[in-house]
Design a protein around this nucleic acid. Structure first.
Lengths: 215, 215
DNA sequence: TGCCGACTTGAACAAACACTCAAGTCGCGC
DNA sequence: GCGCGACTTGAGTGTTTGTTCAAGTCGGCA
């Protein structure tokens, strides 16, 4: 593992700090210190602090598959379980940090009230990439979900549930609302599946398709 | 309407600015200018900026019934429709501001990464008051929902859906994800209700709910 | 060897920040 | 009229902010 060059060191340091402290509360000096870089170098690579944020958001987006989604799906084949495996990953992140760090994109999305178009576009791209992954699962689930169900809308709703759950978990410093949100989401999925089962095949569907069953 | 005194003028100005720009991006000078107050007066009433935030959060909490929930429920008697009337109010707020201002509490909850206990407690109290209102509705719905349903958990899930929907609406600058989240939430509620209907009374439930009905 | 452009260094900058304070105004009880 | 405490005034505090820049290092190429 070669030592990362200055530019990526800056992006990685900014990524970490924006996640931990938010964008506004992270000073350029913080980033410089954490990356062990002088200010001149930063401004050699980036016109300003906001462009550093753009690079961070681009890195999130480019790495969302390899760093987030694929690890979450490893060992989970059932497409609907993959949706919940993704949520479990966020639960783990909350648990590891005593409910302080949740979804970096969501935090930034609500923190930034002055919405430079470039920033908003990248936030949206990150949300879209996340939603796409869930959407794939819902499509792969095929007829286990009602035919007339809007799968894209449901995928976005899963993101909604994750972000809202993370927000409450962080505020209460307690995982139980996050768990409750996941449980309600699962209850909804269960009902959708029950409804989608064609009557003649009722017996053919065991309660849990594969892997561990949890409620 | 008497002119508000200095203290409340400060709180109201801060409330507006924190909503529009967030806490970190609102300077004390902004508040002073907007409230037409000198800095000495502010520090006569409040030890510091954060205590101003505490006062704002207390005001939100104290006014949540009169200013938010009761207006949303006016003219809506059906308890389950009241849940969606509350969501409709947030939709209106997003629509009125071109999807820039959503839920002030949610924004603050994700913006503040350094979580002074006092601030977090008030954020939590605001969430709890909101959830309580929805909880009341779910209890008032009585047997229209499954008996074994955890009504408190579902109430928190409604908040989850609202906050997540607001977050995406703001990011995409588009109401459609918010609407989609509400639609999915309604689909879940519909299924819960359908399931709760005792079989012998199946014919007694018309598609559109009116006031509370006997089973 | 000499030169050039890519990159680094770190002091310096003005603006913005939250906050302080000595001086002053004002209404009210005596 | 007097004194006192509540409140106001606004210039001033020191610090932190994002950003600039002249000077320097260094590797590769002619």
């Amino acid at each position: 593992m070669a030592a990362p060059d200055t530019r990526t060191r800056l992006i990685l340091a900014a990524m970490k700090l924006f996640w931990e402290k938010g964008y506004g509360s992270t000073s350029v000096a913080d980033v410089l210190q954490s990356a062990r870089v002088n200010s001149g170098s930063l401004y050699h690579f980036f016109p300003g602090k906001q462009d550093l944020l753009l690079a961070v958001l681009d890195l999130y987006r480019d790495g969302i598959r390899r760093m987030l989604i694929e690890p979450a799906w490893r060992g989970v084949e059932d497409p609907l379980e993959r949706v919940f495996a993704l949520l479990a990953r966020y639960r783990q992140s909350l648990a590891d940090t005593e409910c302080t760090y949740g979804c970096p994109i969501g935090s930034l999305a609500l923190e930034l009230h002055e919405p430079d178009l470039a920033v908003r576009e990248r936030l949206a791209a990150n949300f879209a990439a996340w939603t796409d992954a869930v959407h794939e699962c819902l499509i792969a689930a095929g007829e286990r979900l009602p035919r007339e169900l809007d799968r894209r809308e449901l995928a976005a709703f899963v993101l909604t549930g994750m972000e809202g759950g993370v927000m409450q978990a962080r505020t209460y410093r307690d995982l139980s609302t996050f768990d409750g949100a996941v449980r309600q989401l699962r209850a909804y999925f269960d009902r959708l599946q029950r409804e989608a089962i064609p009557p003649r095949a009722l017996r053919a569907r065991p309660p849990a398709p594969r892997r561990k069953e949890r409620r």
